[in-house]
Design a protein around this nucleic acid. Structure first.
Lengths: 346, 346
DNA sequence: CTGAAAGCGCTTACAG
DNA sequence: CTGAAAGCGCTTACAG
């Protein structure tokens, strides 16, 4: 008897067939493969060898059904219609990549959910919510209260966002107040006097950054000039339009704190079109430190959110919670990355 | 009897309970929900109403087990170790986003696979391959032959890549030869004389672009100067190093055809560091038209691959193939998008 | 240490 | 047009 050819080996065998080959019952195979202490070491050894030799792969669907789980993690991108966030935003894409990588390592499948979440009830009746072992939500949008409801009745949840008061759900985020303050203080240290804020502070994270901006200005005794605050949306084309309109009024500014790297890039392009040099005339700081931030021209000074680590943390907290562990929140430190766009020669 | 509160409604009910409520059998529920012509219209109506009212969501795991499928599509990123492609490359991220969106619409879950595929046999014995209803492979790497093997024995496959000879698998891609030619002809039309090629032509897609580059130069009767071809890797830091070294030799060039937008951005940054202006001194064309290409400074002229549509096509071909349809290959036209980086004032 | 049996929630061929 | 029964491939409480 010669062993079958490689090709034939790929006829999939199931647990019963493996049991027949090993001369034991399905029960024993199942226990053996999960390394149960109930099974004799030699038997386990034989089972493992045969499984390998015959290329046995367990049917996860059957296993999941039996164990009453789905092995699916649902990732919700809380895209904000008003601030016009899109899936194509590099920040979201990098977050998806990072979460997907971590989930793969943890052995979960990923289900992406993009419809905007109108109400907790609607979302809770969706398949995405019902048949996920856990849910990762990126951003709080404008539905913070709904998230509190969700946390009470849905599968385990972890949210990326701002540490807002009254929060009842698990959170991973970075210190947005500190981030806003860091960016602003850096610009002040560069000698910038009139510093603008570009971002829609209706969103919880941006509200905190604005607070940091405000605090930093206060430290120097600067008064807050409302005309320097601009609710720039995330989406580039509209961001451009809003920024252009602002610059057309020839505001006297020497620095800009932007709420995303993309907004910073739009700002730099607009400034150039108005004949204003960056960083010589106006210094610009971005936010997120997306992959590309180091390769623009000028390279972006920005507040790093460490997206890679964020994804890992989100998955870690969630899988822990699924296993019934108590997981604490993580608010990571924001860090300033100085590159070229802010090197103002005041 | 008052109907239960909203919260109570979220006790999940199964098909048996729904059957009890409707006063019919599980068989009829199952048929009714799938709109089988076997079931009386009135009965169906009642079933649908009750399902909605009691918030019934079918257990997909059980359904999948019964139907012998997984509902999972595996997406393999064929990252090339030598050319140093990373998951963080915006091209891949945008492709992931686009594929994920299309899969969500088609009702499939996504499983990301990143380990490099060493051999077809290894991959075929992995869970990712065994328990996927279909596989999307982004890029051919250096394992074209293995892909032919895979296509013969694995679940349905569709590959994004180059139309290489001897191919036996389903393909979606863009016309790389044409893309390379378009980029080169555009630079020639701008008056550029010595045009460099930045990219590793060991990879099938880049080999075709190089061929297009060569053809275009030939049309004008230019001879090929091997010193103008540089195997720039995809990863930015190494790309930077390779490009810097090249520029240090003060090559006389007036244009560069780059094999990705990221490489183009690295090139522009390097050129600036060498005191060379883009596009005045050297005109640069990128490849892919990633989202960010329009917002760099200068904005990138590039060859568009329409990643959005690529994702849709990949999913369309694959889901068709899973349903047993014959799906044809699609090689889409490459288009030149002219922005600022190539507006050479020769 | 091992096995027979029940059951996870569905779908469908078969019978009526 | 509807239902009873078998079965998808696993895991585990129970019995030995």
């Amino acid at each position: 008897m010669v062993s079958s050819s490689k090709t034939d080996d790929f006829k999939t065998i199931d647990m019963q067939q493996l049991a027949d080959l090993a001369g034991v019952s399905r029960s024993t195979i199942s226990r053996g493969l999960s390394d149960s202490p109930l099974v004799n070491e030699k038997t386990k050894q034989k089972i493992r060898e045969l499984a390998l030799k015959h290329n046995y792969v367990m049917n996860e669907t059957a296993r999941n059904l039996r164990l009453q789980k789905s092995n699916i993690i649902c990732m919700v991108l809380m895209l904000d219609a008003v601030a016009e966030q899109h899936t194509s935003d590099p920040f979201f894409l990098e977050m998806i990549g990072s979460v997907a990588d971590s989930l793969a390592i943890a052995g979960y499948d990923l289900l992406l959910y993009h419809e905007p979440i109108a109400s907790a009830d609607d979302f809770r009746s969706s398949r995405a919510c019902r048949q996920s072992d856990g849910i990762i939500i990126i951003g709080q949008g404008r539905i913070h209260e709904e998230l509190n409801l969700l946390a009470a009745f849905a599968p385990p949840i972890v949210v990326w966002g701002a540490n807002v008061p009254g929060r009842k759900y698990r959170l991973v985020g970075s210190d947005n107040l500190q981030g806003g303050a860091l960016a602003t203080r850096h610009l002040m240290a560069q000698g910038c006097r009139r510093i603008a804020f570009f971002g829609d502070r209706e969103l919880p994270e941006l509200a905190l950054r604005y607070e940091g901006y405000q605090q930093a200005l206060g430290e120097r005794g600067d008064s807050l000039d409302p005309s320097l605050e601009l609710a720039v949306p995330f989406e580039s084309h509209h961001a451009n339009a809003v920024i252009e309109q602002f610059l057309d009024k020839k505001p006297k500014i020497e620095g800009i704190v932007c709420c995303s790297d993309l907004i910073a890039m739009s700002a730099i392009a607009s400034l150039h079109r108005h004949g204003i040099r960056v960083p010589e005339d106006v210094a610009v700081v971005g936010y997120d430190d997306i992959d590309i931030a180091s390769r623009t021209h000028p390279a972006l000074t920005t507040i790093s959110q460490d997206i890679r680590r964020a994804g890992e943390l989100l998955v870690h907290k969630l899988t822990g919670a699924i296993k019934g562990k108590r997981m604490r929140d993580t608010i990571s430190t924001a860090t300033l990355v100085v590159r070229e766009s802010s090197l103002h020669q005041g």
